[in-house]
Simulated scan of single mutants.
Amino acid sequence: MLGYVTLGVKDMDAAKAFYGELLAGLGAKVLFDMERIAMIGTSMDEPMVAVCVPYDGEPAHPGNGGMAAIKAGTKEKVDELYHRAIELGASCDGEPGQRIPDMFYGAYVRDPDGNKLAFFVFG
């Protein structure tokens, strides 16, 4: 049901590099790039992350309570994505760990623009 989530950024080149490198291990890449907005994913038919410079020309800033959650598939992949994000300049917003016993394992970061991301697996 979800097509894409859009994250406002200040520097498109830096954002495309961050998300392209971060999500490469999930098979994602920049699929569509129109200078002001770029879609990153595995296919235009699957959910994607869009990075963009805000249309209204105002500065990009993360919303309070907004978060993009990226399905990792395994606990090991959650850990890998978390550590890769930190290496790429993200900041920790919650280290990898079991959040709900036997149900939800996740990790949280803030990208270089302050957008909150979760990497997770159910089960």
Rank of each mutant, 00 (worst) to 15 (best):
V30W: 03
M39S: 12
E35F: 02
I40D: 00
G57M: 15
V53A: 07
I37E: 08
L31M: 01
D56M: 01
Y19T: 08
H83Q: 14
L26C: 06
D33V: 07
M34L: 05
Y82K: 01
V30R: 05
G25M: 01
A15P: 04
A17H: 09
N64T: 07
L22E: 03
A72H: 09
A14I: 03
L81D: 03
N64S: 13
M34E: 15
K10Q: 04
P47G: 08
V49Y: 04
K10G: 12
D13E: 13
M39C: 12
A60G: 07
E21S: 11
A60I: 09
H61I: 15
P59L: 11
M12Y: 02
H83A: 09
A17Y: 13
Y55W: 11
E35C: 10
D11P: 03
E87N: 10
K16R: 08
G20Q: 14
F18H: 09
F18G: 05
V51Q: 09
L88W: 10
V53N: 03
A38T: 08
H83V: 00
M34T: 09
G65Y: 12
E76H: 06
A85W: 01
K71D: 04
A28N: 01
D56N: 06
G25Y: 02
A69S: 10
V30P: 14
K71V: 02
M48C: 13
G20A: 08
P54Q: 00
I40C: 11
D56T: 04
K71T: 03
A69C: 10
K71L: 14
G20V: 06
T74R: 00
V49I: 06
V78Y: 05
L81A: 00
A14G: 13
Y82P: 07
K10C: 15
M44V: 11
L81G: 10
G8D: 14
K77I: 04
K75Q: 06
G41C: 03
M34Y: 13
E76T: 08
A50I: 04
A28I: 00
E35H: 03
T74E: 10
G25D: 13
G66P: 00
M67Q: 10
L26E: 07
K16M: 11
K71Q: 12
M34D: 10
M34A: 15
G57K: 02
P62D: 12
S43I: 06
I40A: 04
V49G: 09
A28T: 05
A24E: 13
L81M: 00
E76A: 14
N64H: 08
P47K: 07
V53E: 11
E80D: 14
G20E: 15
P62G: 07
G8V: 06
A14S: 02
D45Y: 05
A72T: 13
G27C: 03
K77Q: 00
A17F: 12
E76V: 06
A85D: 03
N64R: 11
